[in-house]
Amino acid sequence: MPRRSYDQYCAVARALDAVGDRWTLLIARELLGGPRRYTDLHADLPGVSTDMLASRLKDMERDDLLTRRRLPRPGTASVYELTPRGRALLPVLAALADWGAPALDEQRPTDAVRAHWFAVPLLARLARHFADAPVRVVDVTLDEGAFHLVLDPDDPTTGHYADGPAPHPDTVLRMTAATCAALAHDRFTLAEALAAGWIDQSHPDDRTADPATA
């Protein structure tokens, strides 16, 4: 299929030629957390059809936003991962998250939620909070799941995140999805949330040991 274009000599138009189609930026959001299999992407993009997802992945590969590679044996699956050009979308998505935050009120009954969807706006907030502390890796745990952030206090746009807890986090934050959304969108600071008891912060060594390994 030929590439659609606005045919305007404008940087905004050129950017939208590549990422303006429905689902493209949300696929980038998912892949900012690291390589993902097609089935993982489909599971965490509720509402996208298999045909649409396959089409968008091909478009993004064509536009040098992502690449596909086969996992080493004995695995047979392929994974998609962002190119440097694709990873450069992090500040774009962070700005969109800030712009869209006022529309994120009460969670609607039809709203899907994944814990890691809060990661992009949290990167800058937590990098700012921990700028003067020896904290670079933060586990965030919600009822809906867990993810971790790798912070760069000097340049929050270069941080990254991934699903699940980190092997060696510096600190662990536990909260509800509503609290996480409010924190991610500057309705209060982490210091204020900790003081109010809305967030529980602990050291990784304080986590209860797994009974199976204790």
Rank of each mutant, 00 (worst) to 15 (best):
L31S: 11
V19E: 07
P134F: 07
T213W: 09
T158I: 08
A18R: 13
M1G: 07
A191V: 05
T67E: 13
L45V: 02
M52I: 01
R62H: 13
P167E: 12
A95Q: 14
A177P: 02
A77F: 04
L82R: 02
G197Y: 08
A18S: 13
A97H: 06
T158D: 07
T50R: 13
G75F: 05
G159K: 02
D59F: 03
M1D: 07
T24V: 06
D206M: 10
A43E: 08
A195S: 08
A177S: 08
G145M: 12
T208R: 15
S49A: 09
R29I: 00
R128M: 08
T50I: 09
H42C: 10
A162W: 00
V135L: 04
F130N: 01
P167V: 06
L65P: 08
T171P: 00
T141V: 13
T50L: 14
D132R: 10
A77Q: 15
G164M: 02
M175Q: 05
A54S: 15
D7Y: 14
I27H: 02
L66I: 01
Q8L: 01
D51S: 15
D206N: 07
L53W: 08
M1E: 10
W117D: 13
T189R: 11
L82I: 00
L142I: 01
D132I: 03
A112Q: 04
A28T: 13
L96K: 10
A101L: 11
R3S: 14
R29T: 03
Y6A: 13
T208V: 11
L173M: 10
A95F: 09
P169S: 12
G145L: 04
A193Q: 10
P153I: 01
A166Y: 06
A95N: 06
A193T: 07
D205V: 11
D17Q: 00
R73F: 13
R37C: 09
S49Y: 05
F147K: 10
A88V: 00
T179N: 05
A115Q: 02
M60V: 00
F130C: 06
T179F: 00
T24W: 01
M60G: 11
L31Y: 04
R128S: 15
H185D: 10
